[in-house]
Amino acid sequence: MVKSFGSQPVLRGVELRVREGDFLTIFGPNGAGKTTLLRVLATFMRPNRGSGKIAGFDITKQATEIRRRLGLVSHDNLLYDNLSGYENLKFYGRMYDVPRLESRIAEIVNQVGMEARLHQRVGTLSHGQKKRIAIARAMIHRPSIVLLDEPETGLDQEAIAMLTGILDSLGPRRTVIMTTHNIGQGLKLANEVGILVRGKIVFQGPKPTEDPAAFSDVYYHYVEAHR
């Protein structure tokens, strides 16, 4: 896939294959195109050239089918500040046609630990609390494919553990693609890793090591070689 903004190429021919059930972490320096890649995969924007399929559906022609299966946790919370957490979840739940919505809201809110503040307006919550509601929003429809764009931003260790618990609760067939700068966290969660440099995937495969320090050497080797 190729994606440019004006004359500025951001993705220069990304080739990516992810199996069902995989947890792929994509590492890359600033400006490598990680967020743009996730935005194309999330069907926010179309690639200028190339094609892609998610769960067998074409990302440009069958975007609605992909969206039905997709959950995104991004830098933005995608929440309305003047609505409560409950009202936000109810709105998104309706948009996703979530069956038995009330019980699903109760279940996901319990998982993110926000029962006590569910009816408080989102604008009055702390950054971490908003992020928890944002995770509940992303998971309200039990997505089978989850995109995480640097999810550790604004989340403490407890919240990250909560997030991985929710991902596990989606079942073994759920697929996760995560972008991050945090090598330790990204390596710990993934079974597959990718390195994106200047808009190209320069490495993808099973994680070569469990040791963050050793992986850092591999990572910087690829970054320097393709910079």
Partner: peptide, 18 residues
Amino acid sequence: VQEKDSGCLQGLMLCPVD
């Protein structure tokens, strides 16, 4: 504007709705 400034426009675009 409210959708855009709060980032909720992306949330709407993610929804599997016509």
